[in-house]
Amino acid sequence: MENRHKNMGLSDETVLAMYETMLLARRIDERMWLLNRSGKIPFVVSGQGQEAAQVGAAFALDRSQDYILPYYRDTGIVLAFGMTVKELMLFVFAKAEDPNSGGRQMPGHYGQKKNRIVTNSSPVTTQVPHAVGIALAAKMEKKDCISFVTFGEGSSNQGDFHEGANFAGVHKLPVILMCENNQYAISVPADKQLGSAKVSDRAIGYGMPGYRINGNDPLEVYQYVKEAADRARRGEGPTLIETMMYRLTPHTSDDDDRSYRTAEEVEKAKLEDPMITFRTYVKETGVLTDDREQQMERDIEQLINEATDYAEQAPYAKPEQALDFVYAETEQEGTR
């Protein structure tokens, strides 16, 4: 198999780190389903099948200064930006120590200021204008950082996508909009969601380049996001990137996808599962040896076991902590 990453300027170590982050995201996801099905956690929203695009993109950003506005499937992105396995487990167990929300939000609603992971809500695509606002602030302050925002193809129908994209286009702001097109908005397939052939076609309306690329290939995603990031930092404005992939699991642990798609379709998509195809790549290019792989799997399992045990035993927030942080604490007495 041809070594593609060398020509892209990516070292073996970086490519290995990409694969390891993808694998970690997948194994965490699988564990969450087990925890859900055994009654230990109430809810899972999954990112299986989307790890390649997430991790490829995250590695193309400047993880020391860029802002990310992930959506609820982006375990791969937040891991790459510094959220730990323990923190993710605290989140799904809704424990007080959860850095995303202190046990307030459903899983998947990421946010961690120290890693510039911007807090997210459930009404979809509200984060696109926020990313544009963060890019506006960066431009005003002549900072080198950019913002990176993700959303699904269904979400690209929301007004906030269009209003945000247009605003970014008008002001040539340093923001990357990445659609993770997993082909389903819960049960509704993309052809019932999009009036245009592609989400990326929408870019032209907002004066930015739009690309549809293979979201199962982290190297291709890396390449396009890197180019978009370079453009943004040069002051040339926003880019829309549509990454094509397949949602391998039901929408959430509360969904049964058998009612709207066939098992054959899912099985066929699994042949393109990036965990399989990218594994083949790293093995065949010699980036990942058998020994290293076995060690990696053992390390990840141990990490997840420890994180799960810790999170399961960690305390919940006290009931009355529900009252905290409605307003800034210094003002609370005056406003209550």
Binding site: Y67, V118, T119, T126, V128, P129, H130, A131, V132, G133, I134, A135, L136, A137, A138, M140, S147, G159, D160, E163, G164, N166, F167, V170
Partner: peptide, 21 residues
Amino acid sequence: DTPLSESAIAGVAIGAAMVGK
């Protein structure tokens, strides 16, 4: 001067406020 786009006006302002503006 923004585009005629109230959700973006609010949303962009919110994003900027979250990073210190």
